[in-house]
């Protein structure tokens, strides 16, 4: 087996008396899609924030290609965040600049890493808008004039434009209606396959996890109660909580 891209061990974090993460181990290899599922408040988003270096854990280590993320300087971490990593927020308004046009939003990461040719930046923005199925003639429109689903797709385009290796996604389909969700999931799946992306996706939607993920981690109250291949976990759940979770999915 190849060495993992991201490898975290023994992550523990408490918010006062409330344990958010208890001794969590997680790793992800190149091209792999890993889903983290669990109910609200189970520590999914906190885990994502700790892994991406936005929050420091009380104990544990996070290694990115053998490099300690938590010991990195802020400059190095920011560079990582805008080149090899990407973060898709649950609420697209957190990840987008609403006062900047769609093209500017997509171009920002390019300019942050040193692109200084307007024509090239605009060409790249156009090709990414096409990939996420946003009309080319909306390139100069402000994101606030976009629908929720379009904003989320724009955020994905903006994140993927620098061709990151690993993307953190925090419930990217939350708050969208089902048909839009389906298209977005389809988009994420095809993009991750085409680009060989590793994706760490937080979701409470079991169906989305089954569709996208190679592996799945089930979290409850800060503890990973079960993990394994998606089909194994969902078809043969071992832990009582996983069994409950799988059985509560409504069949359409």
């Amino acid at each position: 087996m190849t060495t993992p891209l991201l490898d975290a061990k023994g992550l523990t974090l408490r918010f006062g008396a409330i344990p958010a993460l208890i001794d969590v181990d997680i790793d992800i290899t190149a091209g792999e899609v890993v889903a983290i599922v669990g109910e609200s408040g189970s520590g999914k988003t906190t885990l994502l924030r700790v892994l991406s270096g936005m929050m420091a854990p009380d104990a544990g280590s996070v290694l990115w290609r053998g490099q300690d993320v938590l010991a990195m300087g802020e400059a190095a971490r920011r560079r990582l965040m805008r080149t090899e990593w990407g973060y898709v927020h649950q609420n697209p308004r957190d990840g987008l600049r609403l006062a900047v046009s769609a093209g500017g939003n997509v171009g920002e990461r390019l300019m942050a890493v040193g692109a200084r040719h307007y024509g090239n930046i605009r060409g790249e923005a156009l090709s990414w808008l096409a990939k996420v199925e946003i009309d080319a003639d909306r390139i100069d429109d402000l994101p606030r004039t976009f629908s929720g689903g379009m904003q989320q797709r724009l955020q994905i385009a903006r994140t993927l434009v620098t061709q990151p290796k690993l993307v953190f996604m925090d419930e990217p389909t939350g708050g969208l209606d089902v048909s839009v969700q389906a298209r977005l999931l389809d988009l994420i799946r095809s993009l991750s396959r085409e680009l060989g992306l590793s994706v760490l996706i937080v979701t409470h939607d079991i169906a989305a996890a089954r569709l996208l993920a190679d592996r799945i981690l089930v979290m409850r109250r800060g503890v990973v109660v079960e993990q394994g291949l998606t089909d194994r976990v969902l078809d043969d759940p071992q832990h009582p909580y996983t069994q409950l979770l799988v059985s509560s999915v409504l069949a359409a």
């Binding site: 400059a75 600049r97 046009s101 500017g104 920002e108 942050a112």
Partner: peptide
């Protein structure tokens, strides 16, 4: 202050980009 410390000036170029686009 943090952006200056990290010489993270992509934002200013975004502003110039917006000018050209508009």
């Amino acid at each position: 202050k943090r952006l200056h410390a990290l010489a993270d000036y992509g934002l200013m170029h975004v502003r110039l980009y917006e000018d050209i686009a508009r």
